Computed example of a mutant assay.
Amino acid sequence: MNESLMLKPVDDGTVRRRIAQRLTDHIVSGGFAPGQKLTEQQLASALQVSRGPLREAVRELAEMGLLVSIPYRGLFVRSISRQDLEELYSLRTKLESFAFELLWDRRTPEALDDLGRRHATLKKTIEAGDDSLQAIEQELFLHNWCFELCGHNLLRRTWQGMQPHVNFYFSLHQKAHDRKGPLRDSHDVYVSLAQGDNLQAMLEHLKDHMRQGLARTIAELSTDLPEA
């Protein structure tokens, strides 16, 4: 069997949800290549599930944009383009900046300590260097902090809807760097400013951090990126 299809079987429970989560994890961790063609038969065999709940899960992932179903051609893992990256980074910048504007006067010592603990946990995982998926999940958990604290439910749900895409791009970014997670000190300034007193400096850092991340990702993946 193709190594990329070596998925663990789904056990009892809410089968559709478990299938969707298993496929999402496999996509965002880079288990499938962008643009790779999949078939129901392969997936059902690898996951040891029936076609009914599998189709429901595939439909859910297609609605999220992680899978693409093309009539008369088949099912594909989403590919990426330069425009995809630019849209993701620009929207992330706006959403995260808005979250910080809302949360700035809501920060408490307990909330700031929580951010510090998330950062410390991420650093430990990076230092261990043996679990890229966990590092990506913890990087997302660090960035979740501002949305959890902002007090804006629609903003938080919008961010949650984006997370599979952000997770997917984080995975591509780490594979392009050939490393299992971000650099150990990559969030030091972010966390320091988030715990500080200068909102404007925080917002400027966010714009610069996102802009640099976009430029690096496009440069490293340039040979594989169509324009649109």
Rank of each mutant, 00 (worst) to 15 (best):
L38T: 01
L115K: 12
I19Q: 07
P34A: 13
D84L: 03
Q21T: 03
E96Y: 07
A57G: 10
F98Y: 13
D25T: 01
R55W: 10
A20L: 02
F32Q: 06
L43Q: 11
L103V: 08
L61P: 01
T24I: 00
T93R: 14
Q42T: 02
L112N: 10
P34R: 04
A20I: 01
L47Q: 13
D114A: 10
R55K: 14
E56L: 05
S90T: 13
P109H: 14
L38V: 03
E110H: 03
G74L: 06
I27H: 05
E86G: 00
G35I: 02
A57V: 03
D12A: 08
E60V: 00
I80H: 15
S97C: 05
R59A: 15
Y72L: 07
L54F: 09
P53M: 15
A46G: 09
K94Q: 15
E63Y: 05
R107G: 07
R107A: 11
A99P: 04
A33N: 04
G30Q: 08
L23N: 01
R107K: 14
A57C: 05
E110M: 03
S90I: 00
V58D: 07
S97Q: 14
R78V: 12
K37W: 05
L75M: 08
Y72A: 07
E56C: 00
K37G: 06
S45T: 10
R22L: 04
E110D: 13
T14S: 14
D105E: 15
L66N: 09
W104V: 02
S69C: 01
T14F: 12
D12E: 14
V49A: 11
A44W: 06
A99H: 11
S69P: 00
Q83Y: 12
E63G: 06
F76S: 01
K37S: 15
A20Y: 01
L102W: 09
R78T: 14
V49Y: 08
A111N: 10
V15P: 02
E96Q: 13
S50M: 08
D25M: 02
V77D: 02
L43T: 05
T108D: 15
E86Y: 04
V15W: 03
E110K: 05
R16M: 13
D113G: 07
L54M: 12
L66Q: 14
H26S: 11
G30T: 01
D105C: 00
G30V: 03
A62T: 13
L102C: 12
P71R: 13
E87M: 06
M64Q: 15
